[in-house]
Design a protein around this nucleic acid. Structure first.
Lengths: 257, 257
DNA sequence: TCATATTTTCTTGTATTTTGATAATTTTAG
DNA sequence: CTAAAATTATCAAAATACAAGAAAATATGA
């Protein structure tokens, strides 16, 4: 273990399922002497990436809350998309969850969302939660704009159920590209139906999607064109706004240098 | 620069005011050769603590969003307090922002909040933003339960305007303790009035506060007893709930070991 | 309260990493 | 396509992380 890995391995032990660890537990898990772990943990506590809790346990520290806020205030995608999610929700014909998601390694992560007040179910897409790459409209809308070697690399780690499953996936992807949007039902959450369109900005390296998710039971076929129209127009607005934010950042850097 | 410091120094350059940096800029700022910075930045990008953006710029990476989510789902204070904020808001006689805040080093940080739909102004207390220790009810309610050497250490870094200012501060603190809650007007944000009560759990090492903030213009003296009663009863509920969560965690660790 | 157990820090020579100057390569922009 | 900019690779010297046990500090419980 060397470099940042040494710290990252410890931080990555802390999960939704297990959010507190003692030094001895970490030491056992990573097969590393406890004196070493004590030293590293002390460093992380000093930097507020960990904090000590009751009974010799440690948990993730407030530095993450601080940096998360900075991202929310400054990430061009979040900044550009966040303000439109509520508006999109209000223009949808039925109760919905609206999600802005992006590629994160070879998973998909929601970075902003808005749920209408009376939408009862929960989607699996929650801010910060990693989601599978090949299931659900939210994810597929992101991949549909990726081509060639990039796509190949991305899918390299995915395992399809069988060759037929794989063929269907690629056929759907092609179809999505023709239509301009994705639609899936029950792929990620039973009882929910999702629609998504891609959001891209090559200059800024943004590969993302905007989606609206509904209860299958509320959804009627005549809603589809409205949903699609809303998604499309808001995705264009967001893309335009991203460019504007980019220009602002450029100007800022030019002035201050 | 050694150990985690070397990574932390770089990460801490990224702020609300300046959220993207090039390697050369970092190198100049930290007076460290660029070849070294390139190597460290590469490590941080690999771990997704940074990500590369357009034009050779880097910004904070999605790892922070991921870990922030884990904290929201698992931090005892956030878990215990979050569900009550909306209820507290609804029982207040006027529109309000309701904040759960905690000690973070020698600053105060909001970790959860709920604003009633028609509250127009913004408070400075935002999730993840560091706030001064000695101004505002939210902060003072946290310090009021800290005594002796801990208090001394905490205040060591604070600079009071003059001796008179300092005296007033300690007199207020004593008074707050007698009343059981804090009230300040316009200390942090002009036009806002804040009420706060402490939330503590010695076993878990929690030093926090619960507060309701109102527009001064909406506030009438007869609201005060209701506000105070609400804050007090919810703070007790939250403290009890924290204990329950603590027991759950204890059980979890006993079962899994 | 004191004695005991647990947690954490300290100490040390040695092994491992990190560093930074420079060169080589890749990417970007016109 | 070319030139500039950004990034990676190399490698010996310098810095530091490591492991193991001892020591200290802290928590626990009768």
């Amino acid at each position: 273990m060397s470099g940042f890995t040494r710290y990252n391995k410890i931080l990555n032990l802390f999960s939704e399922q297990r959010s507190s660890w003692t030094v001895l537990e970490i030491s056992a898990e990573l097969k590393t002497p406890s004196s070493t772990i004590y030293r590293i943990v002390r460093e992380l506590v000093l930097a507020e990436f960990l904090e000590s809790a009751a009974g010799a346990y440690f948990r993730l520290g407030p530095a993450f809350i601080k940096f998360n806020r900075i991202i929310n205030l400054s990430d061009p995608l979040v900044r550009a998309g966040q303000p439109f999610l509520k508006k999109l929700a209000n223009e949808n014909p039925i109760e919905s969850v609206n999600v802005l998601a992006r590629l994160y390694g070879n998973k998909v992560m929601c970075v902003a969302d808005y749920k209408t007040p009376f939408f009862k179910n929960n989607t699996s897409y929650q801010k910060g939660k990693l989601m599978p790459l090949i299931y659900g409209a939210t994810s597929r809308a992101i991949i549909m704009k990726i081509v060639g070697k990039s796509l190949e690399d991305l899918l390299k780690q995915e395992t399809f159920y069988d060759d037929n499953d794989k063929d269907t996936f690629f056929k759907n992807l092609k179809n999505d590209n023709k239509k301009g949007y994705c639609k899936t039902e029950g792929q990620v959450d039973k009882g929910l139906i999702g629609f998504a369109v891609p959001i891209n900005n090559k200059k800024l390296g943004i590969e993302a999607s905007l989606s609206s998710i509904f209860n299958s039971i509320d959804f009627l076929p005549e809603h589809e064109p409205i949903i699609y129209a809303n998604l499309t127009s808001y995705s264009l607005l967001i893309e335009r706004y991203i460019n504007q934010i980019f220009d602002d950042i450029q100007n800022y850097h030019q002035i201050s240098s």
